[in-house]
């Protein structure tokens, strides 16, 4: 049975450095001038975020067998792909979906429509980072559920994967939606497997020893990947449990 989780927007506001880095601004310098130039925009965007965002998530445990059907989806995954080898070694698996809600997406559009482009762009960047933080929070929540239900004595190592990345075709969203029913928290899927509201993430949480998640980014699809977030996700694992 999927479990809903509601999060206060204040808990999800991303830090300034990650938001500016996401916009490819050079903040990793000893000079603070770049950060100072945009601090007012960042704080304005965060105020808008806290006002309009409604972070929420849905999570449900799933058996290996059922996940195999979800993962194989419409039969369009790249072969080989890392998750095919990883999930059979998982100790626990859960499907998840998170969203920041429609209101904040409307706020971004309204800012662009009123020519407040810089603030709209900054709010979009804040929301993209915040969506990841919301997924981190759901991952952390799942870790603590596993401890609370005595499946583990301490928060386990968890890495998440989403359709559209690492060889898992984006059409994988369809089976996730059939199993998890994220419509319950206001997320819908269009015929091109695009989630609405836009600032939504879905996927799978894979619990297991860190070594099961290790793979070399040498698959054919890695050559065109612009995210490379797999490296950080492997390294961090259950870091959200440390927060």
């Amino acid at each position: 049975m999927p479990e809903s989780v509601y999060l206060p927007p204040d808990d999800i506001v991303p830090d300034e450095s990650s938001v500016l880095k996401a916009q490819k601004l050079p903040v990793d310098t000893t000079e603070d001038s770049v950060r100072q130039r945009f601090h007012w925009l960042y704080t304005s965007a965060c105020a808008q975020f806290v006002r309009y965002a409604r972070p929420r998530g849905l999570i449900a445990g799933i058996t290996h067998e059922s996940f195999s059907q979800v993962f194989n989806g419409e039969g369009l995954n790249e072969t080989p792909n890392p998750l095919s080898d990883i999930f059979p070694k998982a100790e626990q698996i859960a499907l998840f979906a998170v969203t920041l809600g429609q209101e904040v997406s409307i706020a971004i559009t309204d800012l662009f429509n009123s020519n407040d482009f810089a603030l709209g762009y900054m709010l979009d960047a804040v929301c993209s980072e915040a969506a990841e933080r919301t997924a981190d929070a759901i991952q952390n929540y799942y870790a603590h559920v596993l401890v609370r239900t005595k499946a583990y004595n301490y928060p386990p190592h968890i890495v998440r994967y989403s359709p559209g990345f690492c060889g898992w075709h984006i059409s994988g969203q369809k089976k996730i939606f059939e199993y998890l029913l994220p419509q319950e928290i206001g997320i819908t899927l269009n015929q091109n497997y695009l989630m609405q509201p836009l600032k939504s993430i879905s996927g799978v949480l894979v619990v297991g020893k860190p070594e099961i998640h290790q793979f070399a980014a040498a698959y054919p699809f890695c050559a065109t990947c612009t995210h490379r977030s797999c490296r950080e996700r492997m390294r961090v694992g259950w870091a959200s449990a440390h927060r």
Binding site: Q23, V34, R37, F38, L41, N115, F117, A118, Y121, M122
Partner: peptide, 15 residues
């Protein structure tokens, strides 16, 4: 300069 500054200039142009 960076994209946010370009966008602030664009807002000024629209004005």
């Amino acid at each position: 300069i960076f994209l946010p500054e370009v966008l602030l200039a664009a807002k000024a142009m629209c004005a």
